[in-house]
């Protein structure tokens, strides 16, 4: 609306100012995203090279070191930097090994769920008709259940274990990429270049895989990385509830749970794995936001 526009008329100074400010903001944001990506990368390296990095065997118990405080506290020992848990196991080493579970579960769940989601979403969005009706109904029903309770129920049925955690989470996780893919496919299939491919005689498979999929992949990748943080929290929650990987395998959620009883006297047992979860989840979230900005042309000039 021009006639009743109340925006300020542009004058030279504020313009220059706002350009400067906006560029600074973009820059800072990118630096933050970059830093976060480095943090995530460090966690991944830590998980991969755990046996070489960890100062101790994560599962060796030593009752003499029961609840030993971190090195810088009274009674600490620099060989056990973050102290020991109730069974005298080195907390740092367990955190390093625990990263393997968190990252493996996170990556595996997101990978499997995204693959299923892409196939189901493409089929629903491109083929429409009854395929779409069936898939959309299933998605709606799954979305109706609270995530954690759904996973707890499944774990209770299947019993604990690494593979079962992944399965329990995938059961519902695929719904999210599926919805994204379906929406993007619905929008993309109407574009003229898709119609052009059909006019040239391309098969449905060619159109789905070669024309549509490459063009909708970026939002899917962005959503998947964001979801990875959620999945890591869910895995930690399940482990916290004792439904995750079974002891003595180190897992951050279970470590937090282990320390609960001593939280007043021996705060370090729960706190350090908690911080590890926080750092990794935060890192993934911020990095994926940077990723979204980079992928999403709406954020470009």
């Amino acid at each position: 609306m021009t006639a009743i526009d109340n925006g300020p008329a542009a004058s030279a100074d504020p313009v220059v100012n706002s350009i400067f400010r906006r560029n600074m903001a973009t820059f800072a944001e990118n630096r933050l995203a970059l830093g976060s990506a480095v943090v995530v990368l460090l966690f991944v390296l830590m998980a991969v090279f755990a046996p070489f990095i960890a100062p101790h065997d994560p599962n060796v118990t030593d009752l003499f070191r029961r609840l030993q405080p971190p090195a810088w506290q009274e009674g600490g020992d620099w060989a056990y930097l973050l102290g020991c848990d109730a069974l005298g196991r080195d907390i740092l080493s367990r955190i390093i090994y625990g990263a393997r579970i968190s990252i493996f579960v996170g990556a595996a769940v997101v990978l499997v769920a995204t693959t299923i989601g892409i196939v189901a979403g493409l089929a629903a969005g491109f083929l429409r008709g009854w395929v779409d009706t069936v898939i959309s109904r299933v998605v709606d029903i799954l979305l109706g259940f609270p995530y954690l309770i759904f996973a707890i129920g499944l774990m209770a049925m299947m019993g604990p274990g690494l593979i079962n955690i992944i399965l329990a989470l995938v059961y519902k996780e695929w719904v999210i990429p599926c919805r994204v893919v379906r929406g993007e496919t619905l929008a993309t299939r109407e574009l003229e270049y898709v119609e052009a491919a059909r006019a040239l005689g391309a098969s449905s498979r060619h159109i789905m895989m070669r024309e549509i999929l490459p063009n909708i992949l970026s939002p899917v990748i962005v959503v998947s990385t964001i979801r990875m943080a959620h999945v890591i929290i869910l895995e930690a929650s399940l482990s916290f509830l004792g439904l995750g990987v079974q002891p003595p395998t180190a897992s951050w959620g279970a470590m937090v749970a282990d320390g609960r009883a001593f939280i007043m006297q021996s705060w370090w047992v729960s706190t350090f794995p908690g911080i590890a979860i926080l750092l990794l989840v935060l890192g993934i979230n911020v990095a994926s936001q940077g990723l979204r900005d980079a992928f999403d042309p709406r954020f470009h000039e």
Binding site: G7, S11, A12, V15, I19
Partner: peptide, 8 residues
Amino acid sequence: GLVRAPGR
């Protein structure tokens, strides 16, 4: 008078 940043 409707030119906005980045215009001037």
